[in-house]
C-alpha cells in the first residue's frame, strides 16, 4: 500500500517540457523527418488552407447582397487588408494585394489554429517566418530596383540630413534595411513561441494538487487562472502579430514603390 502511494507520487512528478510542443514529428510512423515527410507541419498548414478556403471561398459562395455571417467576416477581412494596402503602401501597391492577403490570412489562421489545445503552431518556427520575411524582403528589393532602377539605392542617402551626417546615416540605413527580414521574422515567431511556452509552463503547475494538497490548493487554481489570462492575451497577440507582419510588409513595399521618405 505504502509503496503503491510512493509509486503514484513518483509518477505524478511535475514535468516541464514547454518546448516539446514545437517539435516536428512525422504524422505516420516514427521515421526521420525528411524533406517530403508528411509531418504535423503538413497537417496544421493544411488546416490553415482549409480554414482559408472555408472562410473565403465557401463563406462567400452565396454571393449574397445581404451577407451571411461568414460572408460578412470574409468581406471584413478583405476590406481590412485592402484598406491597409491602400493607406499604407498607396494605390500603386494594389497589384500586390493578393500576395499581402495571402501572407495575412496564412499567419492569422496559423496563429489561431495554434491556440487550439494540443495544436502545432507553424508560425512559432523561425524557419517558417524567415521564409515569409525573406519573401517580402526579396520582393521589395527586386521590385525596388525594377521600378526605380539604380535610384532605389538613393533611399539610403538621406538628402534632408546635413551633408556631414549623410555617410553615417547611409551606413545605418543600409544596416537597418538588411536587419528588416530578421526582425520581421523573429518578431512573429518569438511572440508565438513565447506565449505558447508560457501557457505550457503554467499548465505544468496545474497537476500540483495531485501531488501535494497543501500547496496544490493554492497553486492549481492560480495556474489555471494564469493559463486563462495568458490564453486571452495570446488570442489578442495572434491577431496583432498577423496585423503587424502585414502592415510592415506594406510599409516595406512602399519603399519599393516610392523610395523617397
Amino acid at each position: 500500500m505504502a509503496t503503491d502511494i510512493q509509486g503514484a507520487e513518483k509518477a505524478l512528478e511535475l514535468k516541464f517540457y514547454p518546448l516539446d510542443q514545437f517539435m516536428v514529428e512525422p504524422l505516420f510512423g516514427d521515421g526521420p523527418v525528411g524533406l517530403f515527410t508528411v509531418t504535423n507541419v503538413t497537417l496544421w498548414m493544411a488546416l490553415a488552407v482549409l480554414a482559408t478556403i472555408g472562410l473565403l471561398v465557401l463563406g462567400t459562395s452565396g454571393r449574397a447582397t445581404i451577407p451571411s455571417r461568414m460572408q460578412s467576416v470574409a468581406e471584413l477581412a478583405y476590406g481590412f487588408i485592402r484598406k491597409m494596402v491602400e493607406d499604407v503602401a498607396g494605390k500603386d501597391a494594389l497589384p500586390y494585394f493578393p500576395y499581402i492577403f495571402t501572407l495575412f490570412i496564412f499567419i492569422l489562421f496559423s496563429n489561431f489554429l495554434g491556440l487550439i489545445p494540443g495544436a502545432f503552431t507553424t508560425t512559432s518556427h523561425i524557419a517558417v517566418t524567415a521564409v515569409l520575411a525573406m519573401m517580402v524582403f526579396l520582393t521589395v528589393t527586386v521590385m525596388g530596383f525594377v521600378n526605380n532602377g539604380a535610384a532605389f539605392v538613393g533611399m539610403f542617402w538621406v538628402s534632408s540630413a546635413p551633408l556631414a551626417l549623410r555617410p553615417v546615416l547611409a551606413v545605418i540605413e543600409v544596416i537597418s534595411y538588411f536587419v528588416r527580414p530578421v526582425s520581421h521574422s523573429i518578431r512573429l515567431a518569438g511572440n508565438m513561441m513565447a506565449g505558447h511556452a508560457v501557457v505550457k509552463v503554467f499548465a505544468s503547475f496545474a497537476p500540483m494538487i495531485l501531488i501535494s494538497t497543501g500547496i496544490g490548493i493554492l497553486v492549481t487554481p492560480m495556474s489555471i487562472i494564469a493559463i486563462t489570462a495568458i490564453y486571452a492575451l495570446e488570442v489578442l497577440v495572434s491577431f496583432i502579430q498577423a496585423y503587424v507582419f502585414t502592415i510592415l510588409t506594406c510599409v516595406y513595399l512602399k519603399d519599393a514603390l516610392s523610395p523617397h521618405h
Binding site: 523527418v33 503538413t42 490553415a48 488552407v49 473565403l56 494585394f97 492577403f101 518556427h125 524557419a127
Partner: peptide, 23 residues
Amino acid sequence: GNQIFWLAITLVIIFFVLSRIAL
C-alpha cells in the same frame, strides 16, 4: 527543409485560391 517545403506548397495553394477564386 520539411517546414519550408510544406510552407511553400501551402502559400502557393492559398495564393491561387485567393487570387483566382476568393478575391
